[in-house]
Design a protein around this nucleic acid. Structure first.
Lengths: 129, 129
DNA sequence: AGATTGTATTCCCATAAGAGAATATGTCAA
DNA sequence: TTGACATATTCTCTTATGGGAATACAATCT
């Protein structure tokens, strides 16, 4: 199997930095026509249209005609999926107290799931990628 | 140019559902050896090793030898990048009050950036992808 | 040393990507 | 109509993916 389509998922759609940039622009400046985004992103128009196409497939944006322009609007609710997933890990970097607590729980989990193995001569080694 | 490498970025790394699953497993069950993950994911071992390789490249996990096992540990701090980005949009779905406020601000932004265009015969049309 | 277990790496394949260039479609204006 | 403008679609190309299968490497046991 190849990599999942960018349109298969919000996670895949926002993996592309340009698309996050588009989201940010629509979020901070409000609705925009394609050419406004082209100007801001300094990217050829077809590229922008293609990115918008992906974002529309996953419903992160919606489009409406306005004269000859096509105005895009952010639909931020679709980002909730991402937020919901990643917020579980928020506690790991927020407050010192939570972090200390986390480490204790971590150790507890380890001692539950990892029954002490027989002693080993060469013990654990930290590795770099 | 092709799509950015999965190892180029935390965003790209977590686009793959299996890798998010691995992160979740390491997060909830604590450190795990590869075979533990293989059992939980019901995926061939090489596949798991490859996903772990990607996660290690972006520092989402670290590995250490323990006898013949290789134990992987989650490094959740790397998810902060994602959280920081997506939390800007949190207000859009949390409380009703914020939402109403947001809509007002949105309208304000629009009236600033979009000078009223000449009247149009066929007015705006909502479109589906 | 040889066998066994745990994990990583390599090779092949089908699929899709994003960029660039060219072109098609759609809408208003004279 | 013709033409200009705004946007979308289609083509080609290079590159990377993730799965499967086979194999390589590493550590321990007998």
């Amino acid at each position: 199997m190849a990599r999942a389509a960018t349109t298969s998922d919000v996670f895949n759609a926002i993996a592309e930095p340009r698309r996050r940039q588009i989201i940010d622009l629509l979020g901070s400046n409000g609705d925009q026509a394609v050419n406004d985004l082209v100007g801001a992103l300094r990217l050829p128009q077809p590229a922008v249209s293609k990115h918008l196409h992906v974002l529309r497939r996953v419903r992160l944006v919606s489009a409406s005609r306005r004269g000859r322009h096509r105005v895009y609007r952010l639909n931020p609710k679709e980002l909730k999926t991402v937020h919901d997933w990643v917020k579980h890990y928020e506690r790991f970097w927020t407050h010192q107290i939570s972090r200390i607590k986390e480490r204790a729980e971590q150790r507890a989990r380890e001692s539950h799931t990892q029954p002490p193995e027989p002693p080993r001569s060469k013990s654990q080694t930290q590795e770099q990628p």
